[in-house]
Measured scan of single mutants.
Amino acid sequence: MDVFMKGLSKAKEGVVAAAEKTKQGVAEAAGKTKEGVLYVGSKTKEGVVHGVATVAEKTKEQVTNVGGAVVTGVTAVAQKTVEGAGSIAAATGFVKKDQLGKNEEGAPQEGILEDMPVDPDNEAYEMPSEEGYQDYEPEA
C-alpha cells in the first residue's frame, strides 16, 4: 500500500510541476504579447503594419512553449490582441483601416495563427491545408 501511495504522490508532483510550467509559459506569452502591443503603439504610420505582424510573430513563438489545451486559448487571445492593436492603430490615425491585415508588401496577414497546427491532446499534428499553395516548377 505504501508503494501505491508513494507512486500516487510522485504522479501528483509531476502534474503540479507540469501545471506550473504551463502557467509560466502562458505568463511569458502574455508578456511578449504586451511587449508587441507597446511596440505597435510606438510606431509611426509606416511601421504600424509591420508592428502588428511582430506582435503576432512574438506571440506565436511563445505559444510553442505552452502545451496542451492552453495553446488553443493563448492563440485565440493573441489573435484578438493583434486585431485590437490594429483597431487602436486605425482609431489613433497611425494607419488607414484599409491597410490593416496586410503586410508591407500588401499581402493579407489573416491566418497567421489560424494555420498553425495545434492539437490540445498532444496526440497528432496535421499540416495546414494546401489550398493556398501553388506547385513550383523550376525553369529549365
Score class of each variant (00 low, 15 high):
V63Y: 09
E130N: 14
K10A: 07
T33N: 00
V48F: 02
T75I: 08
G7H: 14
G51C: 08
G47N: 07
Q134L: 05
K58L: 03
A11N: 00
K96T: 05
T22W: 10
E28N: 02
K45V: 06
G67F: 13
K45R: 10
G31N: 13
E104S: 15
T33P: 00
D135S: 02
A19C: 02
V55G: 02
G31P: 01
K32Q: 03
K80G: 04
P117D: 09
T75L: 11
V71E: 02
A85K: 04
E110I: 05
E114A: 05
P108K: 02
A53V: 06
K45A: 13
A19W: 10
G67V: 13
G68C: 01
V49K: 14
V3Q: 07
A53T: 05
E137I: 03
T44C: 12
E104M: 15
M116I: 10
G47F: 15
G51H: 12
G25Y: 15
I112S: 08
A19P: 00
E61M: 09
G132D: 11
L8V: 07
A29T: 11
E28I: 09
A91F: 09
V40A: 13
A91L: 05
A89E: 02
F94M: 03
E131F: 10
S129V: 06
Q62L: 07
V118M: 13
F94T: 13
G47I: 11
A17C: 09
A90P: 02
Y125A: 05
T75W: 11
A17G: 07
M127Y: 11
K102I: 09
A30F: 14
V48H: 00
E20P: 00
P128I: 12
T54H: 14
D115Q: 09
V40G: 01
T75M: 09
D2F: 12
T22G: 06
M127E: 09
G7P: 04
S87C: 11
A89Y: 09
L38W: 05
D119G: 15
E114R: 13
T22D: 00
F4K: 01
K10H: 03
G7V: 04
T59W: 05
V40P: 00
E35F: 12
V70M: 15
A85F: 06
E83M: 05
V118R: 09
A140G: 09
Y133C: 10
A29V: 09
Q79C: 07
N122P: 03
E114M: 02
G73K: 09
